[in-house]
Nucleic acid binder design. Structure first.
Lengths: 154, 154
DNA sequence: GTGCCTGCAAAGCTTTTGCAGGCTC
DNA sequence: GAGCCTGCAAAAGCTTTGCAGGCAC
């Protein structure tokens, strides 16, 4: 617990500095939201999820503030905005070091796992040649049944 | 023009039969919508797009009917439902023969092109082994600047 | 003190749903 | 003729926006 907190304290300081550098104010709302993501690095939280989570530490926070903050943090590259097709955006902490990871989405229970490895760089080069696109990003999702749901099929 | 119509007339008959086989009624609304997609095989139409398009041939059609029909056709595998992140679903005719094609999305003008080639089957096998997922589908999107927008950068 | 931020409420958008009437089979 | 389909309007969800007050700097 203490060790885990140690883990992200550095990260937290760096991000605060980044905000200051962009002349964004360090409000307690922003700090609380940021901490929620640092404490849940492996989760994919929707705005509503985040709101519920943060409300415990900061009961007066408004949902609109959560939306605005998520937007801001994604704009700065601190969070990554994802769309898993369930009608709401989901955010996760953007670890710069593992540049690209892809998502496995269970079409039964909605659980989202991650899959590392890129392998798509060579494909991007081919696309630039063939289609004239200058590719800057890609998004790869796999849909299927997770380990748990697999066994309950039919 | 006539040749292009010849091209999809067979396809059209086959789909009508499929609908009948499922005991779905062949209403003029459904026929008109289906034809709109057969005449625009290369487009990625939203519900609103489809609605506007179909309104010319069938002015009394309702938007709700378009939504219901798109849903039905996607359910039957006749259309493919896509989400390109612009806040609305987009549909395209699902050509069974070119099983998997991927999308190139211009982040400036929103234009969507296609990119053929699958290459991901081996990755799916690895995922099943590593993560325990039974993968049934995948979705790969590339984001970048199309040929036209590329030249107008900065 | 300045002006960015916030909370609240209202509005915006896409999509879904309820219902009475209509049309396909 | 039976019951699925349709059009209309209302509602549902997620997200954005306007505004007056408040807080970080």
């Amino acid at each position: 617990m203490a060790a885990k907190q140690e883990e992200w304290k550095d990260e937290y300081q760096k991000i605060c500095e980044l905000l200051r550098h962009h002349s964004y104010k360090l409000t307690p709302q922003r700090q609380t939201i940021l901490k929620a993501f640092l404490e849940n690095e492996d989760q994919h939280l929707s705005a509503e999820d985040t709101f519920m989570m943060v409300k415990h530490n900061y009961p007066d926070i408004g949902l609109a503030t959560v939306y605005r903050t998520l937007d801001l943090l994604a704009e700065l590259g601190i969070l990554q905005k994802n769309d898993f097709g369930d009608g709401r955006s989901r955010y996760e902490f953007n670890r710069k070091d593992e540049h690209h990871h892809h998502h496995l989405i269970c079409i039964k229970c909605g659980n989202v796992s991650e899959f590392d490895g890129d392998l798509l760089e060579s494909l991007e080069a081919e696309i630039e040649k063939r289609n004239g696109y200058q590719v800057v990003d890609h998004d790869l999702k796999f849909y299927g049944y997770c380990n748990k749901c697999k066994s309950t099929l039919d």
